[in-house]
């Protein structure tokens, strides 16, 4: 038995929050993507060589979309579950006949939807600055979806772990941003000295960006299979943590 209406209620409520803040939600990816393109794509990029046969402006598109997707997924999902905890409105979800899976589908589904919409907007915005093509659209969508779901789950975990607004920001700012910048958004890791190449392989974001970029241009730092495996593994780890959270009531129930 699935509480279909319960999932829908959570999802709808979360999406309503998204629509309420639509203008700022839309403005942020459009503006930030434009800025990145003006600075790195047009201004600096025009003086840079192409990487792996792809013009620099086009080269950074997948990385920028990933950057946006990661930060948006995390912040939407973490905020989505943190707010009811903070306001106390979570009592209703805890007292309702909804299972863990249903709650997660509702919240994470809404966060995923929102970050996918924003990623699509960023892709459209990029179109104004550079020409890029997508050689493997199905794979592109697969990576987009897997990443949005994984990082929304990750954000959900942060939103449950955090007990202050500061903590809500700290992981995205201190860990995810640096990992994304260092994960090959703006360069190919083959451009790094061998030692740093090895270090970089410990950065999970490298696999996301590499696989995603491959779906655009057919070139990648690591193989597609490895990228896919790492993405799925991250998804699995997040699922296990979420299951544990609800089983133990961690930070949700006294």
């Amino acid at each position: 038995m699935i509480n279909y209406y319960g999932i829908r209620a959570i999802y709808t409520m979360e999406m309503a929050r998204t629509w309420r803040t639509l203008m700022q939600s839309i403005a942020s990816p459009v503006i930030s993507t434009s800025l990145y393109f003006i600075v790195f794509g047009s201004a600096i990029g025009s003086r840079l060589m192409s990487i792996d046969g792809v013009g620099y402006g086009a080269f950074i598109v997948p990385g920028l979309i990933m950057l946006l997707l990661l930060t948006e997924s995390i912040s939407n999902a973490s905020f989505g579950i943190y707010m009811p905890r903070y306001l106390g409105t979570i009592y209703e979800v805890l007292s309702a006949p909804v299972s863990v899976v249903e709650v997660v589908i509702g919240y994470v589904g809404a966060a995923t939807t929102k970050s996918l919409i924003l990623a699509a907007l960023a892709l459209l915005t990029a179109q104004f600055f550079v020409d890029y093509d997508i050689q493997h659209p199905i794979w592109m969508l697969t990576f987009l979806l897997l990443t949005a779901v994984s990082f929304s789950l990750f954000g959900f975990i942060i939103g449950i772990w955090a007990d202050s607004f500061e903590k809500l920001q700290v992981i995205p700012m201190m860990i995810v941003m640096p990992l994304t910048f260092l994960g090959g958004t703006f360069y190919s890791i083959s451009m790094l000295p061998p030692f740093w190449q090895t270090v970089t392989l410990f950065n999970p974001v490298v696999y996301l960006i590499s696989g995603f970029r491959w779906s655009f241009y057919g070139v990648s730092d690591v193989s597609l299979a490895v990228s896919l495996a790492m993405t799925l593994m991250f998804l699995l780890v997040c699922l296990v943590i979420v299951a544990w959270i609800f089983k133990t009531g961690y930070r949700l129930k006294q």
């Binding site: 209406y5 209620a9 959570i10 409520m13 979800v93 309702a96 006949p97 909804v98």
Partner: peptide, 15 residues
């Protein structure tokens, strides 16, 4: 009305 409709849905009832 949205919050009341939410409560109803959450408890598994059709709108």
């Amino acid at each position: 009305s949205a919050t009341v409709a939410f409560s109803r849905g959450l408890f598994g009832l059709a709108p």
